[in-house]
Amino acid sequence: MKTKYDPTDWISHMTRIRDAQDQAAFAELFQYFAPRVKAFLMRSGADATLAEECTQEVMATLWQKAHLFDASRASVATWVFTIARNRKIDALRKQRRPEPEDLVWGPEEEPDQADILSLQQESEQLGRAIAALPEKQRDLIEKAYFGDLSHSEIAEQTGLPLGTIKSRIRLALDRLRHAMK
């Protein structure tokens, strides 16, 4: 069963976790995302026990890092994916994952509501575009993300329509840079 959730609602869940350590909000996020993260880790080569353990750590990290989530740059699903991906590198491949310098909003400023809304809409559109890809192409992309296609095996032209979402994120970054000055 796949219930369709409103992704902007997940953002309010994140806010409730960040501002009020709201366990009920966390429980709903957990119910939706944990089984997906576990499936992702198992497709990436973890056995059920390791995947279960890592998923719990991923979800705990989501709680711990709730204040770093920026809804003008990522959907909650994307944020969960990045945490799960990092756990995969750490636990499955036993490597460090160097991260770029963090850019975070200061205590006085927050991202613009309009930026948040358009980014979330773009994320949904991207989801629909991926679902509509020809099967062969979608297989390749899934292999890149869930399997272990190396950079030289990934084609330079993926056919993914990423231009608009990239521009949105770029705009959000420009605003953040401006606020950091």
Binding site: A27, A48, T78, F81, R85, L103, G127, F146, I169
Partner: peptide
Amino acid sequence: CRARAASFDSVGGALLEDTDMVDMEDGSF
């Protein structure tokens, strides 16, 4: 490139939402 990398992360997010699910164990939460 930060924005481009983030857009590739969104692909991962979209795939994660659309993937199969594996039940968590009892008492997992």
